[in-house]
Design a protein around this nucleic acid. Sequence first.
DNA 1: CATTCGGTTAACAATTTGATAATACGTGCC
DNA 2: GGCACGTATTATCAAATTGTTAACCGAATG
Lengths: 230, 230
Amino acid sequence: MRSENSMSIVKKILIADDEPDILEIIQFNLETEGYDVHTAKNGDEAIEQAQKHHPDLIILDIMMPGKNGIDVCNILRMQPAFKETLIVFLSALSDEGTEIRGLEMGADDYLTKPISPKILTSKVNALFRRVTKEDTETIQIGPMTIDREKYLVRYEENDITLARKEFELLALLASRPGKVFLRNEILNQVWGTEVIVGDRTIDVHIRKIRQKLNLDCITTVKGVGYKFEL
Amino acid sequence: MRSENSMSIVKKILIADDEPDILEIIQFNLETEGYDVHTAKNGDEAIEQAQKHHPDLIILDIMMPGKNGIDVCNILRMQPAFKETLIVFLSALSDEGTEIRGLEMGADDYLTKPISPKILTSKVNALFRRVTKEDTETIQIGPMTIDREKYLVRYEENDITLARKEFELLALLASRPGKVFLRNEILNQVWGTEVIVGDRTIDVHIRKIRQKLNLDCITTVKGVGYKFEL
DNA sequence: CATTCGGTTAACAATTTGATAATACGTGCC
DNA sequence: GGCACGTATTATCAAATTGTTAACCGAATG
């Protein structure tokens, strides 16, 4: 089984466009760059695919039959799962009003056709570069160091060995101290969207972490989730 | 070390361009949007200003006398303090090679002249929206902070822990201070349309909130509903 | 192979939360 | 005052949620 969680390096991209040529050429270029690319031929399909694969970036053609790109963006942005997803619009018309509306609606970029595949690729890389940096950093919180590279947690000169899931869970929580992570968020981030595990699984891992750290740094927020706090 | 980002609410922007007209119009538009804007007429000045003000975003014209935008970007990116600074290139020529190189060098966007000030503003907003991940989830009313992400209510340095329903109820009322929420509205928003609960249930939760906050901030409007007021 | 380790699940205990009912309070009205 | 109406308060119970432990399975390890 390949590791399917979001700690994995391969970013997922969804492209929605009704022109097969464009779809194909963009897909080819992004796959060449090492991305995991899915496609959709219209708005409804885009939403469907998004729900299914939970892409890290969605490229939306504005003009599509049925639901257009704007609609899709609105629909997805309403769902918590897609609040943070990168969204880039493609458009044949370089209408200033539309572009501004697109950006203010929560898109991260707006590209006008004809599109250079290479430039698109560069922009995609740039977006991911900006967003991804957190995952590679080692996290420092007070006397605790979490080294993602070495899979090592250190607390006041003491090295603590955590198993992979334990580590990823802790790293996730610690990536935003104070933030309450919903159980769903945790499942998506640590276990991935494909795998389905029981409810108690998270608890058990939390317990193991608490046990190993011997430290009260993970707080339960009943009915909501868990948060990290030193 | 995380620079002024978290300290100051007003984002600082540095614009470097050798055309005074462009400088002025961009500056005007961004200042209107509420940014703290500084300008530079050439590359050297840009570096100087950057060192001085530590902007959150730098807009660099590619072609400038002396050090050009690319040079400035390279020089700044070498310094740890500017590793994470947002950088956007402006260019009169839409040369694919240059654009790709600019992006791969670590720029976050590349805009081709002529530039619509409004679009530039939208893009700047979009970049900050992506990078700044706070404020959207928190409600600030005087000395009270309601942090939806952290599920935390703070009143004058005191953290108050509310249960889920209590929190959601308070967050709802506080989302529009002064507005009277009908009991029906509250039921729909907090309990959803599916569940049916008795009328007294709301009262009980209101009471618990009042009790925990130990503060008279929820006013009863008899026969109508409740409202939040500090 | 046997063993260990990580991950998951099941079963049960412990805890917290939420809803209700019963009662007290308060205001305006006759 | 006595009554009606709506809200506040309190205690109580049921339901939902999480904690804990032990056991299971499979992959990695020796």
